[in-house]
Amino acid sequence: MEIAERHQWQLNALTFLYAYTQYVLVHERVMAGQPPDKPAELDQPRIVKLAKVVDDMILDFRKEDGLNDTERRRVVRIARELKPHVLEKWPRGSASLTEWIASAAAHFYCEEHVNNGYVRMGRVFDQDMADRFLERVEFCRGQTLTITKYANKVADGEPLTEGEENQLEVWKEDAVNHLDNLDSDFGDIKMYVDF
């Protein structure tokens, strides 16, 4: 594997890791009746710190350097620490309406961060890749705006419309079916930094 390709996988690991820090933060905000897209006093300082560490690593990432040994070990440690927080928040069949909304919001914000990360990765490594993911920016943003509206309604005690409930059912099925992806994603993070 070429050095540039190895470094691209490392940036991919950072992208996933950052997105999962956002998953935890957004979930907790919605569960507390806060807007999912706004930092809140209840944000766990440790998760905020991990998000900052990973974000700084992404901002400092250089195509020609990649991650050094210390940074690669740090990424693996952060992934190990973060995974239980994400698993704890993953919805189960008996989850309440607020838990499902929180999980959907966390998922969509996570997905938006991954997509934005791929745009950045493409700008660093492959402009065609950046262009492909730029096409998804509006779609991802639309999903986060929609789920934010649902979260605000639930926080205000307003019922969801029948159409909103039907959409939530689709998201529920998707969430339950993708629980196995968590192990895969966190395994991939370790694999990507070890290439």
Rank of each mutant, 00 (worst) to 15 (best):
residue 89 K to Y: 05
residue 65 D to F: 07
residue 52 K to W: 11
residue 60 D to I: 00
residue 35 P to I: 13
residue 45 P to N: 14
residue 72 R to M: 08
residue 21 T to E: 02
residue 72 R to C: 03
residue 44 Q to H: 03
residue 86 V to K: 05
residue 88 E to P: 09
residue 41 E to K: 11
residue 39 P to A: 07
residue 87 L to D: 13
residue 87 L to E: 09
residue 61 F to Y: 06
residue 50 L to S: 05
residue 83 K to G: 07
residue 86 V to H: 06
residue 44 Q to L: 15
residue 86 V to F: 12
residue 53 V to I: 11
residue 64 E to H: 08
residue 42 L to S: 15
residue 44 Q to G: 13
residue 26 V to H: 11
residue 83 K to L: 14
residue 41 E to T: 11
residue 54 V to K: 02
residue 93 G to F: 11
residue 80 R to M: 08
residue 63 K to H: 03
residue 70 T to Y: 00
residue 63 K to N: 01
residue 51 A to Y: 03
residue 42 L to G: 15
residue 38 K to N: 12
residue 23 Y to P: 04
residue 65 D to M: 04
residue 83 K to I: 11
residue 56 D to P: 04
residue 67 L to M: 01
residue 73 R to L: 08
residue 26 V to M: 14
residue 83 K to P: 12
residue 71 E to Y: 00
residue 45 P to K: 07
residue 24 V to G: 12
residue 46 R to Y: 08
residue 58 I to L: 13
residue 78 I to Y: 03
residue 61 F to G: 02
residue 41 E to F: 10
residue 89 K to G: 14
residue 34 Q to L: 15
residue 73 R to S: 10
residue 71 E to T: 03
residue 24 V to I: 06
residue 30 V to Q: 05
residue 53 V to H: 00
residue 38 K to Y: 07
residue 47 I to C: 13
residue 60 D to Q: 12
residue 24 V to N: 08
residue 23 Y to Q: 13
residue 76 V to C: 00
residue 77 R to W: 03
residue 19 A to Q: 02
residue 58 I to K: 02
residue 88 E to S: 13
residue 93 G to A: 15
